[in-house]
Every structure is written in C-alpha cells, then in structure tokens.
C-alpha cells in the first residue's frame, strides 16, 4: 500500500492503495466514478478511456502508480454544468448510442481528436476510433456524431 496523489476532474485526490491496481478500478471503486467502464482488461475495447493530461488513455491496464501527479478527466466532468459539451450533444442528437456502455470512451476519444484535428476527414475519424469497440455496432452514427460535433465547432457552436 502507498499514497498516490493526482488531480481528478479538477480536484486534488489522494488514494492509499496497492501500486499495481489498475487506475480504472481506483476511479470506480475508490472515487465512485463509474462512467469509466470495464470492457476487456487488455486494452482492446477502450471503454475505460479517460483523458490523462488531456490525452486519451486506457485505464484497465494502467497501474495507479503511473497516474501519480497527473491530471485525469473522466466523462462525468466533461460538461461541468447543465449545458452538454458539444461532442456529448452531437452523440445525443445523432442517436449515436444504443446500450451506451462504450459511449463515454467514444466521446472522450472524440474530444481529444477534435482538439488536435478540428476538421478530421472520415479516414482520420475511423483511424482514431478504430480501437474503440461498440458491440451494438453503431459505428456509422458515431462517425456522423463526430462530424456533427466538428461542424458545430466550425459554425460557431459554443466553442467548447
């Protein structure tokens, strides 16, 4: 057991835990942030995606000790107020979710993509999201939601 400090959704947090424990389980079990999901435990589905220092990261295989001192953003903090983030809004409006279990991870991947590439091509969208699994197989709507979010940003949107 050891103490680890990091920033989670803008707040400093400390956990006292086994260093090898996956960050995913610390977020869910200790910090009660269940929006980040377990899907495979081998980095193959990306349902466990968070933003780590602003970059998407798989947490099911990431030992908590490797997250020490870093900034973690989970899906719960993407829209701090009542107004949804434009990527969340785009997923909602496109119907880009069925069971919704992969949705948080997909949205965070999209946020990072649009940050780096505000107008991605279809090929860039598919390449970026290809590691993320949706077993409801709603891929075409997810691609449409990413495009919608990109267009919303360019056409004014709320700029976030």
């Amino acid at each position: 057991m050891a103490e680890f400090r990091f920033t989670v959704n803008g707040k400093p947090r400390m956990v006292n835990t086994a260093p090898e424990r996956p960050l995913l389980e610390v977020l869910r079990e200790d910090l009660h942030l269940t929006g980040t999901k377990y899907g495979c435990g081998e980095g193959q589905c990306r349902a466990c995606t968070v933003l780590l220092d602003g970059k998407p990261a798989i947490t099911c295989m990431l030992p908590v000790k490797n997250a020490a001192g870093r900034k973690i953003t989970t899906i719960e903090a993407l829209a701090p107020g009542p107004v949804l983030h434009r990527v969340q809004q785009a997923f909602l409006e496109e119907g880009a979710l069925q069971c919704g279990y992969c949705t948080g991870g997909m949205i965070l991947r999209t946020v990072a993509l649009l940050e780096a590439t505000p107008r991605p091509t279809e090929a860039q969208i598919i390449q970026t999201l290809d590691g993320s699994l949706c077993r409801c197989c709603g891929y075409s709507r997810i691609v449409a939601a990413v495009r919608r979010a990109a267009n919303d940003a360019v056409s004014g949107g709320d700029g976030r």
């Binding site: 869910r28 079990e29 009660h32 942030l33 269940t34 929006g35 980040t36 999901k37 377990y38 989970t74 899906i75 719960e76 993407l78 829209a79 949804l84 969340q88 809004q89 997923f91 909602l92 409006e93 119907g95 979710l97 069925q98 919704g100 279990y101 949705t103 948080g104 949205i107």
Partner: peptide
C-alpha cells in the same frame, strides 16, 4: 416520429449506472 433514447443525457454524461456500476454502502467485490 424519430425519438432519441429518453435517458440519452445520462448516458452521454456518464451518470447512468449499469448493473456493474451500482454501488452500495460497505460493498465488497
């Protein structure tokens, strides 16, 4: 008429709790 899932908002914000997300006081794994 085309309608999105009524609890879409809870899904996109991560607020929705699936069975594996349910947490109870003093719960073990």
């Amino acid at each position: 008429t085309p309608q999105v899932r009524t609890n879409s908002r809870d899904i996109v914000t991560g607020a929705h709790q699936c069975p594996s997300d349910v947490q109870r006081e003093g719960m073990l794994y």
